[in-house]
Amino acid sequence: MDNATSLQADLAVRTRDLNLWYGTFQALFDVDLDIKQGIITSLIGPSGCGKSTFLRAINRINERLGYVRTTGTIDVCGHNILDESVELVQVRKQIGMVFQRPNPLPLSIRDNVLCGHRLHTPKGERVSREDHDDIVEEVLKQVLLWDAVKDILKRPAISLSLEQQQKLCIARLLPVKPTLLLMDEPCSALDPAATAAVEELIWELKGKFTIVIVTHNMAQARRASDECIFMLMGKVVEHGPTDQTFVTPQHKETADYIEGRYG
């Protein structure tokens, strides 16, 4: 294995010449990014800089808008997901997404955890109750929610607090064993205590999953990520270890943004 391929194997996401248009408006310009496996990468930048668009391009959820056009390549684990032969359902299975507002389904807590798993269970295959119970327990423990909800699994998920709902939304992704978790401002609907709890969870999940997190919150990016990408006007300005980016930014725009001169 030469150096280049071994390097590539460490990459969870690798984009080349990624351009994206909403109708005639270009939202991403030649984005070349290498996001490493197993770490937390944060995406920062002012509103409208394309960070959410980039995140949404990675699991192709932008496409349902219908007027989105994408060129270039997005390799996830070495495979271009923009390839014609790619089955979208498999992409979504590998790449879980967490939204700004927790969006549990109007089902019980237990059914919320299992719904993704059930979607991907082949027709006719029976999964025993015990197996389902094991899955529920395992993933709820993984998201630090088990102790709080183990006695109320039959309750509607909507009755949980926002923090718990957001954790549940993360838990829901895990039974199908994704490799990549995308989080679009996962704490922006939460109060500071809940934010801290969800950040703690994100740290907990580090290593088991590659996590890409979009955030408006500089402090959060600084606390909760290993690498940091700064975007501006649809272009990547800077990408490096978070400490470095925040202490010694390489570009003036990055420094100005981090220091709050615009946003």
Binding site: R64, L88, V89, P106, C115, H120, C169, R172, L173
Partner: peptide, 27 residues
């Protein structure tokens, strides 16, 4: 039916029909 429910399903890899049958219609 809130759009967020559909997005939640699609993001777990549900097809449109699975989303309709499991989430949209029951609600």
């Amino acid at each position: 039916v809130p759009q967020a429910f559909r997005e939640a399903c699609w993001n777990m890899g549900a097809t449109r029909w699975q989303t309709i049958r499991r989430v949209v219609l029951p609600n």
